[in-house]
């Protein structure tokens, strides 16, 4: 199995420990991981703003870096969603459609592909609140949502339940968007910040020590809000916990 690691630009720049944890975690399960050194971004920032032409060269570079692998794995539902559902600024050749189908977000890769049974090294004796990004929830469907009635399930919670000592708490609005939204966070700053404030206050009500998510972008936004509000909780990516991070 040839697996390439995609470390999205903002994780590369601001949360390198998330990239390291993803790499180490995959290696713990015997996966041989390549990290193409020339990788940058998946093209989502431009494409989400409608700028297809500006996204094309970035998508072409992504294809060059990542084609030919059995799987591309990224610690980001948001970027995975872009690649799987929207990566169409370049011609849809066989190589592109294969790349899109073979790109996985780390939680679904662990849960659905590796079918991980245990994380013996992981212990996190803390009360955590899980934040599922909208891409994870409503696009990749890694958990059930309150808008649709049906059997409830959660792949991230299923993974976290295998971590020793970890307990979870549910906020009042568990699947409300936190307001990051990419460039929305800057161009619609007032609403974005308000949504972030409401989100972290909702978590604060449950007295969690940590907010955990599979998306660092949501965490970066929420952490920025929580710090400004003086709320004490901490923020951590799910792979860090699964890889055995201690507080």
């Amino acid at each position: 199995m040839r697996v390439a690691l995609f470390v999205p630009c903002f994780i590369d720049a601001f949360f390198p420990q998330v990239g390291v944890a993803t790499l180490e975690l995959l290696e713990r399960f015997g996966v041989s991981v390549d990290y193409p050194l020339d990788q940058t971004c998946c093209g989502q920032p431009m494409a989400n703003n409608g700028c297809q032409a500006d996204a094309a060269a970035t998508e072409a570079l992504f294809l060059k870096n990542f084609s030919g692998y059995d799987y591309v794995v990224a610690p980001s539902a948001s970027c995975t969603h872009h690649i799987r559902k929207h990566f169409d600024a370049i011609p849809q050749t066989e190589a592109v459609t294969q790349l899109r189908a073979r790109t996985f977000e780390i939680v679904e890769f662990l849960h659905d592909v590796l079918k991980v049974e245990a994380f013996p090294w992981a212990e996190f004796p803390h009360k955590v609140g899980l934040h599922n990004s909208c891409s994870a929830l409503r696009a990749l469907k890694t958990a059930s949502i309150s808008e649709i009635a049906g059997e409830s399930f959660s792949k991230p919670l299923a993974l976290l339940s295998k971590v020793k000592g970890l307990t979870t708490a549910l906020p009042a609005r568990p699947d409300e968007c936190c307001g990051f939204g990419g460039t929305f966070s800057v161009f619609e700053e007032p609403v974005s910040a308000r949504m972030g404030y409401d989100k972290v206050r909702d978590f604060a009500q449950t007295e969690v020590e940590y907010v955990v998510s599979a998306d660092s972008s949501c965490l970066m936004h929420q952490q920025g809000c929580a710090e400004r509000l003086g709320l004490g909780m901490k923020f951590i990516h799910i792979v860090e916990i699964l890889n055995g991070a201690r507080a």
Binding site: V7, P16, V20, G224
Partner: peptide
């Protein structure tokens, strides 16, 4: 309304 994340010592790359 938000704090800017502190840049870590080095990038993942």
């Amino acid at each position: 309304h938000r704090e800017v994340p502190a840049p870590p010592v080095e990038t993942f790359n």
